[in-house]
Amino acid sequence: MTYILQQILNALQLGSIYALIALGYTMVYGILTMINFAHGDLFMVGAFFCFLIAVYLQLPFLPTLMLTMFGVACLGVLIERMAYKPLRAAPRVSAIITALGVGLFLENFTLALSPYPKNIPPLLADKTWMIGSVTISSLQIIIIALSVSLMLILDFIVQRTKAGMAMRAISWDKTIVPLMGVPVNKIISLTFAIGTGLGGAAGMMYGLAYPVIDPYMGIMVGWKAFISAVVGGIGNVRGAMIGGFILGTVEILVAAFFPSTYRDFVAFTLLLILLIFRPYGILGRPSPQKV
C-alpha cells in the first residue's frame, strides 16, 4: 500500500512534467496543424536557462521560474516568426523539416556552449516528510502543485478569455478569423509564447528533480510528451494534460513491476495499443475542422 502511494506520487510528478510539455505540442498543433518538433529542445533550453539564472544571477525559485518561462517564451516566439511563419503556405513537410532543423540547431548550439553536463544547484531547501511510511519531498509537492496550477491557468485562458476564444476559433478555421477583427498573427505568437513558456517551466522542474542536464535531454522527454499529446488527442488542451499523466503513470508502474530497462518498451507498446482503439486520442475529435 505504502509502495503504491509512493509510486502514485512519483507518477504525478513525472506525469505533470510530461503534461506541461505536451501542452506546447498540442497548442501549436491546434492553431497551426503543425508539430513543433523543436519543442523538446525548447524544454532543454528551459533547463539551461534555469541553470544560468540560478548560477549567475543567484535568484530565488520564483523569479528564476518567471525568467526561465519568459526567456523560453521569447525564444519560441522568435522561432515561430523567423523559421515557421515564412513557411505557413508551404507544403507541410517543409515546416516539419524546418522544425527538426531548429531542434538540431538548439541542441548543437547548447552543446557548443556547454560541452559537459551541468548540475542545477538546489533552488529550494529540500525538506522531506514522512506520512506513515510514504516519503514526500518539498520538491515533489512543488512540482506537482506548480504544474497543476499552470494547467488550471492555461485552461482558464483557453476556455474563458477572449484570447483563448480566438485560439479556439483559429483552430477551427484560421481563414475566417481575420474577418472578426482578430489579429491572427498576434494570437499565434501568444500561443507559441504560452506553449513554449510552459515547456520552459517543465525544463526547469525536470532539472530540479533530476539535476544533471545536457543538450540532448529534450529528445527522449520531448518524444514522450509528444506521444502524451497524441494519446490525449492532439490539438486538445485537456487531452494533453490527461495524456501526460497517463504516460507518467504507465512508466512508473512498468518500472515498479518490471526491470527498468523494459520501461520505455512496455510504455510505448501500451500507448500504441490504446491508439489502435482510439486513433484520434482520448479527447480528439475524428474529423477536425469545419462542418
Binding site: K162, M165, A166, R168, A169, S171, W172, M180, G181, V182
Partner: peptide, 15 residues
C-alpha cells in the same frame, strides 16, 4: 466557428 458557442461566436466579433 462550430467549436464556439453562439454567444462566443458573437463575442469574438467585438474583438
Amino acid at each position: 466557428f462550430g467549436n464556439l458557442t453562439v454567444m462566443e461566436n458573437l463575442k469574438l466579433a467585438t474583438w
